[in-house]
Write a protein that binds this DNA or RNA. Structure first.
Length: 214
DNA sequence: TACACGATTTACT
DNA sequence: GTAAATCGTGTAT
C-alpha cells in the first residue's frame, strides 16, 4: 500500500500532513533498509504562507522543486549541517510541502544508530527533522526524487483509529509573523502504544516491502 | 565575489 | 537556561 502520486497531488496540504501521521517511512540508502513510523509533520502552504520557502512565489534553485507536481522529495540544507526532508504535494505551480519532523524507529535500528553519532534512548534518536534524515541516510543528493520509487517511500498500513492526534503551531517559524501561529503541525500521542497495537500489520508490511523493493 | 542567516541539534553553565 | 557548530542558499555588491 505504497502512497502514490494520486495521494500526494491532493490539493489540501494540511490534510495531507495530518494523513501522513501513522504511515511508515522507508529508506533504502547505502545498502541499509530502514523504516520508521511517522509521528510528527508540518504543512507549508505555498505562496500565501509566510513560513514557506516559496512565500510570495519565490522561485530559486532551491525552491524550484516545490513547484513540481506532488509526489517527489524536497530536501534542503540548513544551519550548516542539517538536511531536512519534505514531501512536495499538490498540483504543478502550487509550491506546497510537508516537513517530516519525527519518526519512531522500527527497522534497521542498528544501522540508524550507527549513522547517528549521538547515543540516545530508543524513542529519542529519530524525534527531530534533522535526526531522522541522518538516521535514514537522507541528504541533499536525495532532493527531487520520486517517492513512488524504491529509495524513499511511504506505506499506509495503520488505521487512523489506532492513534490519537494533537495539532498546534509549527516549530522554528517565528520569522513568519501571524502565520507562525497557524495550527499546521500534527503529532501522534504515545507512539510506543501505537506500535504495540499495530505490531502484526507493521511486521507484515516490513516483509512485503523488503522483498518487493530489492 | 561577499556576507548574513537558517522549517536544528548538541554541549555546556 | 544559553551558545556553538558549520555551510548551502539567497540577496546584495
Amino acid at each position: 500500500m505504497k502512497l502514490t502520486k494520486q495521494f500526494f497531488q491532493q490539493e489540501d496540504v494540511v490534510m495531507i500532513a495530518q494523513s501522513l501521521l501513522g504511515t511508515l517511512l522507508y529508506s533504502r540508502i547505502g545498502g541499509f533498509y530502514c523504516c520508521g513510523l511517522v509521528t510528527e509533520t508540518e504543512a507549508y502552504d505555498g505562496i500565501n504562507d509566510k513560513a514557506s520557502h516559496a512565500y510570495g512565489g519565490k522561485l530559486t534553485a532551491r525552491t524550484r522543486v516545490m513547484y513540481e507536481p506532488g509526489g517527489i522529495s524536497y530536501v534542503y540544507f540548513t544551519y550548516g549541517m542539517h538536511s531536512l526532508f519534505n514531501v512536495v504535494t499538490g498540483k504543478p505551480g502550487n509550491p506546497q510541502a510537508v516537513l517530516i519532523r519525527a519518526i519512531y524507529p522500527i527497522e534497521g535500528i542498528k544501522d540508524m544508530q550507527e549513522r547517528r553519532k549521538k547515543v540516545l534512548p530508543f524513542n529519542r534518536f529519530t524525534n527531530g527533522p534533522a535526526k531522522l534524515t541522518q538516521a535514514l541516510g537522507i541528504d541533499l543528493s536525495h532532493n527531487a526524487i520520486d517517492l513512488e520509487g524504491d529509495t524513499i517511500w511511504f506505506e499506509a498500513v495503520i488505521e487512523p483509529d489506532t492513534y490519537d492526534i494533537r495539532r498546534g503551531a509549527r516549530i522554528g517559524v517565528g520569522y513568519a509573523g501571524e502565520d507562525a501561529t497557524l495550527p499546521y503541525r500534527f503529532w501522534m500521542i504515545d507512539p510506543e502504544a501505537v506500535m504495540d497495537r499495530n505490531r502484526d500489520i507493521i511486521k507484515q508490511n516490513l516483509n512485503q516491502s523488503q522483498s518487493s523493493s530489492i
